[in-house]
């Protein structure tokens, strides 16, 4: 097994342990985003423990801030966050339920209120253009999150300002807290909507590492417009009883469920 796969496996295990330990949190969407964050942080973003405290580097905004466990676990795996992941959601912890940028180096925006992170990412990309640096801004949106009108305000502005330094993953797992996204609020076709907003849209399997890499490579070549990586993912990826089950959006596994989940992730 390559190092990256091992890192991603560790990220998934820590997501499960953190959420189980806190008896709260969002395991489904976090597990589903682990492959994308693994590729981003270990192969694409120029972020490391030495530069993480500053902004003179690539940045990532987790607009779907409830998936904070995947971000914390990734920063931990990368050696940037050196604290105790098991303090997640506890009193006096830096690991807030939804991320606070001032508590953890490498958390680039405080998010959690859906639709807001994407605007901040647009602002960062505009700032990078103004500063004439080559840093890239990455962000991740949820598909349920796209019901927020602010997402489309941000999408419009990103195209208007020709932000080819902005690359946004749409984590398309088809589920949200109340059920199937098509049942709660059918936002299809999201890819066509972003195309209509003048974005470059790339379709991938969000669990296929080579497809993630190829999309990130292609996004770097796009000029004059932002890129949306339309990533089909499985909510709860890696844990049979969580996969594609919206009931695991915001519920923690108990002790037995955790043991089984860790076993399954180990076998991935």
């Amino acid at each position: 097994m390559g190092d990256l796969k091992l890192h991603i496996k560790n990220i998934r295990k820590n997501i499960l342990k953190m959420v189980a330990n806190a008896s709260s949190g969002h395991p489904g969407g976090s597990l589903g985003a682990a492959d994308i964050l693994g590729v981003l942080y270990f192969e694409y973003m120029d972020i490391n423990e030495d530069n993480a405290a500053g902004v003179d580097r690539d940045r990532f905004v987790l607009s779907k801030g409830h998936a904070s466990p995947v971000l914390y676990a990734t920063l931990y795996e990368k050696g940037i966050f050196k604290g105790d992941l098991m303090t997640f959601r506890q009193i006096d912890s830096k690991l807030q339920g939804h991320p606070n940028m001032n508590y953890v180096d490498g958390v680039d925006m405080s998010t959690g209120s859906l639709g807001q992170g994407i605007s901040a990412a647009v602002g960062m990309a505009m700032a990078n253009k103004l500063s004439k640096n080559d840093h890239r801004v990455y962000a991740m949106l949820g598909d349920g999150e796209c019901a927020e009108g602010q997402v489309w305000e941000a999408a419009m502005a990103a195209a208007h300002y020709k932000l080819d330094n902005l690359c946004v993953f749409l984590d398309l797992n088809g589920l949200q807290i109340d059920g199937n996204t098509v049942d709660v609020m059918d936002s299809r076709p999201l890819d066509k909507k972003f195309e209509a907003f003048n974005w470059e849209v790339i379709h991938i399997d969000g669990h296929n590492l080579d497809e993630i890499r190829a999309a990130l490579d292609k996004a770097k070549e796009v000029k004059g417009k932002p890129t949306l990586i339309f990533a089909n993912t499985i909510k709860g990826k890696g844990v049979s009883f969580m996969e594609n089950n919206y009931a695991w959006h915001g519920v923690a596994p108990n002790k037995e469920q955790l043991a089984q989940a860790l076993e399954e992730v180990e076998a991935m």
Partner: peptide
Amino acid sequence: GIAECNMTGIAAGFASSGY
């Protein structure tokens, strides 16, 4: 443009970049 919520978020992005 006429998008005050987005303007506020973009302001956050600029400010977090040192402006």
